[in-house]
Design a protein around this nucleic acid. Structure first.
Lengths: 205, 205
DNA sequence: GGATTATACGGACAATTGTCCGCAAACACA
DNA sequence: TGTGTTTGCGGACAATTGTCCGTATAATCC
């Protein structure tokens, strides 16, 4: 039994992955996302294309992992709040503040998220909603909506569908479109979402 | 001056386009959308790849044109209703029935629309909202929402943003996801959208 | 009507993606 | 330590996309 790897699996899970991510990060920051291809990443990492594709089937997966730290921290911070004891009737306020934070996150990483999404939906026959990030976000939002429903805060909507619809509206695609085509600000977009997904489903009034 | 072409420009705008669309249609129905590539379409149409790419930069554009008849007829029928004299306070009902019809259309052409969308957003730096079909749908929905706002039927939301959000929710992506992952029916999806985009923005109650 | 310019066809070619397999290093077992 | 097995590296290669340019045909102009 070799004590180098089996004992601490997190210490060196795959040295190649690190080198690939390092190479990708360097090339991305130097040339932009679009200008970098898989061959160049393999070359830069000093490995063969086969070894690269064995780990990442496309650029989107590399970007996903580059964002992994950020997304994990972000999702965890959302999820942790969910575990805290809440005052009654606070779920909708909680939803409102979560949406604000999510829009902020989308804004911060719009370009990378957009590429991840297009690669993810392009190859594979998948929808954006099946990506781990959106899947986890969906679970979070569904739970929040269920809580609001249980507390009688909202009219009887389907929490699962509403969460998915909310994610569709929170997608980087819509964000980038509103910015580019209509010069919307982050605040305008957030308010627009509030109107539909907070005020709109609020019970009474 | 040759009297063959200039006089009736609609008679033979581009004989090649017809042959390409014909070839594509045949190959698509025979082998499915995914299995057909641009080279095969050019070969089948009996032309060079250059001539094909001069007219269609990718498969998505070919699909767009294959759907063109359907989309045109559909959008025109929506738009024509808008021109009809309406009773006051009918805009929201009109929106409701339009949503139903749009969901039906999405359902009918989900696969093609999905491919059009992914090609359109993949190459080019465009969002789905910039595709002519969604652009026109957006204008239609915006106008309907403006009318509802003018009639005091809805709370003061931004019609333009709300229309875009509605389109995000009406995208084939969400439709296919709900069907595949949650076994939703067309009716459940339609009801979910009604709750957010009709009942939700309705004024009073 | 002969010369010049414009148009556009189509296949060769470059670029990129993704796969496959020969080969070598690591491992397992006796 | 020798032998058989497994793993996985990496580059050659196939597949596909998209571009480019030599060339033929049509239009325009003396």
């Amino acid at each position: 039994m070799t004590p180098s790897k089996p004992i601490v699996p997190s210490a060196a899970p795959d040295p190649y992955k690190e080198r690939i991510l390092e190479a990708a990060r360097e090339l991305f920051t130097a040339n932009g996302l679009e200008a970098v291809n898989m061959y160049a990443i393999a070359k830069r990492a000093g490995i063969g294309q086969g070894s690269l594709y064995r780990r990442f089937s496309d650029k989107g997966e590399i970007c996903s992992l580059l964002l992994r730290d950020s997304t994990d921290r972000f999702l965890l911070s959302l999820e942790n709040e969910l575990a805290l004891p809440q005052a009654d009737k606070a779920a909708l306020d909680h939803l409102r503040s979560s949406i604000s934070r999510i829009v902020g996150f989308i804004e911060q990483h719009a370009e990378l998220l957009q590429l991840i999404k297009s690669e993810f939906t392009g190859k594979k026959q998948l929808t954006q909603f099946e990506h781990p990030f959106f899947r986890r976000l969906n679970e979070f939002l569904t739970q929040l909506l269920r809580r609001a429903a249980a507390g009688g805060e909202i009219s009887p909507v389907d929490p699962q569908f509403t969460a998915t619809a909310l994610i569709a509206v929170l997608s980087p695609d819509l964000y980038l479109y509103q910015m580019k085509q209509h010069g919307s600000t982050k605040e305008q977009i957030t308010d627009g979402i509030f109107a539909l997904f907070v005020t709109g489903i609020q019970k009474g009034q």
